[in-house]
Write a protein that binds this DNA or RNA. Structure first.
Lengths: 182, 182
DNA sequence: CAGTATCCTGTCCGATACTG
DNA sequence: CAGTATCGGACAGGATACTG
């Protein structure tokens, strides 16, 4: 019973983790966004063993993040391209990128986001698409959705109380808004 | 030599993964944001074995995401609270939440984000804090930073070419902007 | 309540060799 | 070029018992 399966859990984060929780999965996704499509390129760029690559690639295909597409008849050749679901994963990657840059690059950043129009560096921030407001613990809360079970409702009720309270303190107040490099 | 260490890699995503890549780490962080501070509460809420909890909690403390704080003299009692670095991780969690809700909740969502002022659901979106523009493959690019080595520069040069090209296609054009539930 | 101490197992991952 | 086939090791994770 090595690992519990999170699939049946209500938490969307756990469900997401179920698909990209393996060590290589997110790195493979990063590569896919960099434009890598071929087995061989994945292997060279990531320095991953071929059998592992086969497994992870296969898993991502099965989960619907990548699509295995034949691009040559003879010899038969396949490439791996992002599906819509896979493309929607990009924000997670960019949030990770921002976080990594902010906290784990003491000697300076190696990868950055650039606004090609202004030529300035991008500061990735999470906002509400509807209002444009930065997500903040003061204004926003985590609430149960329509499919939430009884247990989840109780959990979130407790959490909501905390989040509201936390919003009152200055430190935690700012926390939610800060997405990346200050 | 079980797993390669990503610590020395230039990629900020890999570096981040090094801290929260274990299965339980992100779930522990989620719990911390829900307000869980005590060992026992983590255990009950996550249904995790106590030895594993000790290990993961200790790792997160060591990585600087959590702080172990004594809140009682006698008997000595400790609690685990988010550090600044830990709080800055929230955007990643929320991006995951949005992605999970969008793609892996066929029977409806169980956890949602609410704007307490308007009473409307939040649509988490990643934007450039400077310009307020949604991140898009058309307008934004990944570029090497000051600390990028030669290898990284070459990699990103190739990637930038692809991303620019991808920005021309409609599907991939929209992809970057969509953070969560449409 | 907040862990520590053991023991066990699954599997993630690495290394290497081989194929159409 | 794009994988498949084996083999092994390390460790994440589980179960359970025990302590101040």
């Amino acid at each position: 019973m090595q690992r519990k399966t999170f699939r049946n859990m209500q938490c969307p984060i756990a469900r997401g983790l179920e698909r990209v929780g393996e060590w290589w999965s997110m790195l493979l996704m990063r590569e896919a966004f960099y434009g890598t499509r071929r087995f061989d390129d994945f292997q060279k760029n990531l320095d991953i063993a071929p059998n592992m690559l086969t497994r992870r690639l296969g898993a991502l295909v099965e989960e619907g993040l990548l699509e295995r597409r034949q691009y040559s008849e003879k010899p038969p050749r396949y490439e791996y391209v992002l599906t819509q679901c896979g493309r929607d994963f990009l924000p997670v990657l960019l949030a990770m990128l921002a976080w990594g840059n902010k906290h784990f690059a003491p000697e300076g950043t190696s990868v950055e986001l650039l606004d090609k129009e202004t030529g300035r560096l991008v500061e990735p921030v999470l906002v509400d698409g509807g209002t444009g407001e930065r997500l903040s613990l003061k204004r926003h809360a985590v609430v149960p959705g329509p499919a939430a079970g009884e247990g989840m409702r109780r959990r979130l009720a407790a959490a909501a109380g905390f989040l509201a309270a936390a919003g009152d303190t200055q430190a935690e107040n700012e926390a939610l808004a800060a997405g990346g490099a200050s």
